[in-house]
Amino acid sequence: MVESADKQEPLVRIRGLRFSRGSRVIFDGVDIDIPRGKVTAIMGPSGTGKTTLLKLIGGQLRPSAGTIHVDGQDIHRLSNRDLYRLRMRMGMLFQSGALLTDISVFENVAYPLREHTDLTPSMLRKLVLLKLEAVGLRGARDLMPSELSGGMARRVALARAMVLDPMMIMYDEPFTGQDPISMGVLVELIRALNDASRISSIIVSHDVQETAAIADLIYVISNGKVIESGAPDAMMNSSSDWTRQFMQGLADGPVPFHYPAEELAADLLGSSC
């Protein structure tokens, strides 16, 4: 197993990434650097492969070309054993929370500890309660996942993702479908955890305002390419029409309002359905 790489190196280095599903090209020569200790956002319209990118970084999918190095290790060249060892240092917050539905909140957070450590029951209990306290859900430890709201489920999943004190946490659309209060809580939690635990965060999202508020660096991807990258302020005032349209949520622009179709008049006069 390769030891931790040079701390000046990016935590995740993606070079020449290509990935396809059938005949559909998702990524076509993507280069991304995820710096250590920062919150990096990967943004882009729905269906651009943002979640796929997280699965590629986590080694759950294999690219057709290119390399992904995580902490200096080429993740797709690792043995199964080394890959699993590396994943113990990576947390992931899934869009749905992905909590195990047949065990309680406490047991969900305790699950990685029970699997990978030999902690005494007393120590394990304290650690789990501290993590639940950090996300404000210590009092919900005995609830089942079916009894949680969407926002609470994601906070429990966040506690589970950080229970092994990982070097990085990947967030897959953390704000989607959240009410304003839950969204505010999550936004603050992600930033606070990143700074307090000195970890690196990757947020995949298309919620521009919330993500831009806490990100140090933003990559915008579309049509299989990185369109632009930079600090949130710079991205908001980008010279690129496409980036400005996306960041400011404009209805029309380089990405047209209308799906490609023949002329309206010709379509209305036509006989086919």
């Binding site: 986590g58 749905s96 699997e115």
Partner: peptide, 14 residues
């Protein structure tokens, strides 16, 4: 469908 299996993989559990 609810990503529980993917979640286990990412927790380094087969």
């Amino acid at each position: 469908a609810t990503e529980q299996l993917s979640g286990l993989e990412m927790m380094a559990v087969d």
